[in-house]
Design a protein around this nucleic acid. Structure first.
Lengths: 229, 229
DNA sequence: ACGGGCTATCAGGAATCTCTCAGCAACCCG
DNA sequence: CGGGTTGCTGAGAGATTCCTGATAGCCCGT
């Protein structure tokens, strides 16, 4: 199975590098460009499976890039990146077809999750599963629902993202820095103690329902979601 | 089961692309042209199951396109697209047979619903079901009627479209942007708060009749119609 | 013209979430 | 065993998100 090809389009080199590095690490094949016309060219030649497209580009808007692509018969799904304070009417009309959008600053784990969600929807026959199950805990990513042995657990958005990151890296120790970098928005500049807080929140909600604690503390290193196999 | 073939005829490329993308994503096989004579040619060669036909075309009117097709023995059903301020006598007389019409701007969900309705009528033995039932709620799409446990509920047009969209994506979280893009007309440029309002309207009408709330709020994400399985 | 239903906006308040902090517990080392 | 370090968790301020009643404009049929 050849890797999934992602085209990243953003004029800020920092964002490009951030996305390229982490998406490549997540197993995608990444190509990145910095403006709209390069994007159209690269989309035509490179035949990507999905495009990450900033809506504010120096030469042309991301909206026009997709219009151009659609008129050329290229209907690759697009995940738009937009500044949070962008007026909302610029966003409406973007999520046609399998498209979606994210506001900057985003979190890297969320980007990967959205990409997989879009690919799941557009090529539905594929294997990719919306269910993430480790031990007694099960996540339905379509419904954003979390179950422990058939009982549903209610999590806040950040709790949900943290648990998903821990579970998709089950049986692997993650440092607080790694967790912070993947689960929190990339411009977060608070303390790492917040990871401890949210691990505590999750434990308080999950552990009463499991036979043994789900998140192990590796003192001096980080945390690990353990699958009782 | 091979996909249903739709021929889109409109001289505005924006509309063509919008329709092509979203209909393709909805599972149809789409071919699109920009004028009347191309439409006749494509209808003859492509053998579509339905035609989406703008009544105002540069070379010939949509009315003449259908006349030409009928005289050639091609009686494929047609869904006319017309501007809102078009005089109505131009519209009447068009919708003979299984035909129908929609005024621009339309909503994407409504287009798909109309196409399915027409196909249901013309090839009635087909599989597509006019009834949409999730949990305690049942929609009869032919009659535009909504029932909760055998009691009919009266909904406004927008409430009905929103409920239908939520129900046809039951057990999947939909963001407010997605809802806005599918349920509201494509040129709507208001705020997303209107989705909250209409969810509130629907809840006020449905929840008194159900054993548990039908629409769940996924805070920070969107809304989901939940089927109590 | 009038009334009624519908759409869309807005604002106040309710509910929930995020993040920090501080005190305490647990652990590790000598 | 004692001191230093690291992790845990309750409390709470501030921010965000959501809900809903009030309201104005619009269109439609009477």
């Amino acid at each position: 199975m050849e890797p999934i090809k992602v085209l990243v389009v953003d004029d800020e080199p920092n964002i490009r590098d951030l996305l390229s590095t982490s998406l490549r690490f997540a197993g995608f094949s990444v190509h990145s460009v910095g403006n709209g016309s390069d994007a159209v060219f690269a989309a035509e030649k490179g035949n990507p499976d999905i495009i990450l497209l900033d809506v504010m580009l120096p030469d042309m808007s991301g909206f026009n890039v997709t219009k151009k692509l659609r008129s050329m018969g290229i209907d690759v799904p697009v995940l738009f990146l937009t500044a949070r304070d962008e007026t909302e009417d610029k966003i409406t009309g973007l999520t046609v077809g399998g498209d979606d959008y994210m506001t900057k600053p985003f979190s890297l784990d969320e980007i990967v999750a959205r990409i997989n969600a879009i690919l799941r929807r557009t090529r539905q026959a594929e294997t990719e599963e919306s269910l993430l199950e480790v031990g007694e805990v099960r996540i339905n990513q379509d419904a954003h629902e979390v179950f422990v042995n058939e009982t549903e657990v209610d999590l806040s958005p950040t709790e949900y993202k943290l648990l998903r990151f821990l579970m998709s890296n089950a049986n692997r120790v993650l440092t607080k820095a790694q967790i912070l970098d993947h689960v929190w928005e990339y411009d977060f500049n608070g303390e790492m103690g917040i990871v401890e807080s949210y691990v505590s929140y999750i434990r308080k909600k999950l552990d009463p329902l499991t036979t043994e604690p789900v998140i192990q503390t590796k003192r001096g290193v980080g945390y690990m979601f353990k699958s009782t196999k």
